[in-house]
Write a protein that binds this DNA or RNA. Structure first.
Length: 421
RNA sequence: GGACCGGUGGCUGAGUGGUUGAAAGCGCUCCCCUGCUAAGGGAGUAUACGUCAAAAGCGUAUCGAGGGUUCGAAUCCCUCCCGGUCCGCCA
C-alpha cells in the first residue's frame, strides 16, 4: 500500500499521479488524510492520558506498600481509564477506515510511465524475430484437435467451461516447456527454484494486493479463509512476508512452477478462444526482492530473462509498456511481453513484468536492514514467468508447417524428446 | 482428530499482579588496558507509532495474536495461532 507519509507530505502529487489511472482512486485521498488526522490527534491525546495513568498507578503501588489509603487516587485513575477507552475506540475506528481505504488505493504509476487512458495507449518498445511466413496459419484449436492433445470436452466433464485436459503428447509438451523454463531461469539465470502451496491464506492475498479489491476474481474456500493462488507471485513473494532481511541477502531471486486459478468473472467472450484464457493454467514465475535503488535496473533484467525463453524457442514477440490507465493495481511500472499467434492473427500477452516498488513490501512488512542499520522496505518485482497455455498457442501456431506438422524448437527437443509433433 | 507441555529481546533463559522494556549469561559493536598466540575493565546493543521543520529528546505501545478482569497484567481469565511429545487416522 502507499506510504501514508508520502500521501501526507505530497497530497497533490499523489492525487495527480493517481488521476492518470482514470479509476477514481484519486478521490479517496482526502478521506484518507482526514482519517489520518483524527487518528493521530486521538493517539496523542491518548498517550498523554496513558502516561498519567502509568505514573499514578505506580503511586498506588507505593501507597499500598506502605499500608496507606489509595482509594481516592484509584477512582481518579479509573476515570482516566474510561477516557482512554473512549479515545481509543474513536481512534481505532479512524485507523480501520484508513487501512480499508489504503488497501483499495492502487500503486502510484512510476513517473516515466507513459500517460494514457487505456490499452490503446500502450507503446510498443521493441520486437524480436520475424513473423513466420505461412500462407495459411491454422488455429491452435485445429492443430490440437487433429493431434488429440487438448480436450475441452474432458475439461468440461470434470470442471466445466474454462478447463482443459492435456492428453498424450500435449501433456508431455507442456511438461517439457515447464522443465525448459525452470532450468533456464533456475540454472542459467540464477533463480532459486521453489515449490509452494497452491492454497494460501487471506493475508497472503492482501500482501501482494489481490485482496480486498479483487476478491470476486479468486477461488476461495472455507468461508474465504483460504484461496487458490491466482498466480505464483502470491505464495512466492509472501515467503518473505513480515521478515527483516539483511542488505547482503538482496537480491532474492525465485522461480516457481504452479497452477494458477482465476474465476475470470466478467471476461466471457474476451480473448478466450481455445486455451487463451482459462480458469486453471500453469505458469512459471519469476520474482525478485531487491534493494530499492536497483529496482528499475532489475526490471529490465527480469524482462530480459522472460524474453530469453522466447528467444531460445525462436518465437517472434514484442514488448510493450503499459500506460498509466492500464498498469495493474499493485504495479508502478509494467512491461508486457506479447508473443505472436498467427492462428489468431494477433499478439498474446505471455509475460507481465512488473515493478511494485515498496507497495507490496509495505502491505506485507517486508523490510531489510541497510548498512547504516536502518530498516527499509524492499522493492518487489515480479516478472511473470510465462503463462504456459499461451506459450503453447504461440508455439503450435508459429512452428507449424503447411502440412500442420509442428516443428519442435531445438532448445526444447532435449526435454520433449522429438523433433516434430 | 484426541491428550499433555510449551511460545519472553539476535540466542539461551529468569520472572505468577505494582519504577520489568523486561534479571543473568552468550553473541555483537565501540572504547580502555596489556607486547604477543590469550585475558581483563568500561560503555552500548529491539521495533513501531506519536510529538518536533528536523535531529536530539520526550511520550506511548509491543513478553505468539486477539479479547476480558483490574486503579495497574509478561504475570489472572477466555478465544485463536504456532511448536514439541504421545495416541488415532492416512496418500
Amino acid at each position: 500500500m502507499l506510504d501514508i507519509k508520502v500521501i501526507r507530505d505530497n497530497p497533490d502529487l499523489v492525487k495527480e499521479r493517481l488521476a492518470h489511472r482514470h479509476d477514481g482512486s484519486a478521490d479517496l485521498i482526502d478521506e484518507v488524510l482526514a482519517c489520518d488526522e483524527t487518528r493521530r490527534k486521538n493517539e496523542t491525546a491518548k498517550q498523554a492520558l496513558q502516561s498519567e495513568r502509568k505514573s499514578t498507578s505506580k503511586e498506588i503501588g507505593k501507597l499500598r506498600a506502605n499500608g496507606e489509603d489509595s482509594s481516592g487516587i484509584e477512582t481518579e485513575v479509573k476515570k482516566i481509564g474510561e477516557q482512554i477507552k473512549a479515545l481509543d475506540d474513536e481512534g481505532s475506528k479512524a485507523a480501520k477506515r484508513q487501512t480499508e481505504l489504503l488497501l483499495n488505493i492502487p500503486n502510484l504509476p512510476y513517473d516515466d510511465c507513459p500517460v494514457g487512458a487505456d490499452e490503446e495507449a500502450n507503446p510498443i518498445l521493441r520486437s524480436w524475430g520475424e513473423k513466420p511466413a505461412l500462407i495459411e496459419a491454422r488455429d491452435h484449436l485445429d492443430l490440437a484437435e487433429d493431434k488429440g492433445i487438448i480436450s475441452f470436452d474432458d475439461g468440461a466433464r470434470l470442471s466445466g467451461s474454462g478447463f482443459a485436459v492435456y492428453r498424450g503428447e500435449g501433456a508431455r509438451l507442456q511438461r517439457a516447456l515447464i522443465q525448459f523454463l525452470l532450468d533456464l531461469q533456475g540454472r542459467e539465470n540464477g533463480y532459486e527454484e521453489v515449490n509452494v502451496p497452491h492454497i494460501i491464506k487471506r493475508e497472503c492475498m492482501e500482501g501482494t494486493g489481490q485482496l480486498p479489491k479483487f476478491e470476486d476474481d479468486m477461488y476461495g474456500t472455507e468461508n474465504n479463509e483460504f484461496f487458490l493462488a491466482p498466480t505464483a507471485e502470491v505464495p512466492v513473494t509472501n515467503l518473505y512476508r513480515d521478515t527483516l532481511l539483511a542488505e547482503e541477502d538482496l537480491p532474492i531471486k525465485l522461480t516457481a512452477h504452479t497452477p494458477c486459478f482465476r474465476r475470470e468473472a466478467g471476461s466471457a467472450g474476451r480473448d478466450n478462444r481455445g486455451i487463451i484464457r482459462m480458469h486453471q493454467f500453469d505458469k512459471v514465475e519469476l520474482v525478485q526482492i531487491v534493494d530499492p535503488s536497483t529496482s528499475m535496473a532489475v526490471l529490465e533484467e527480469l524482462t530480459g530473462h522472460a524474453e530469453a525463453a522466447l528467444q531460445k524457442l525462436g518465437l517472434h514477440y514484442q514488448v510493450i509498456e503499459l500506460c498509466t490507465g492500464d498498469v495493474g493495481f499493485s504495479s508502478c511500472k509494467t512491461y508486457d511481453i506479447e508473443v505472436w499467434a498467427p492462428g489468431q492473427g494477433k499478439y498474446l500477452e505471455v509475460s507481465s513484468c512488473s515493478c511494485f516498488g515498496d507497495y507490496q513490501a509495505r502491505r506485507m512488512k517486508l523490510r531489510y536492514k541497510d548498512a547504516d542499520g536502518r530498516n527499509n522496505f524492499c522493492h518487489t518485482l515480479n516478472g511473470s514467468g510465462t503463462a504456459l497455455p499461451r506459450l503453447l498457442v504461440a508455439l503450435l501456431e508459429q512452428c507449424q508447417d503447411a502440412e500442420g506438422i509442428v516443428h519442435i524448437p531445438e532448445a526444447l527437443q532435449p526435454y520433449y524428446g522429438e523433433a516434430t509433433l
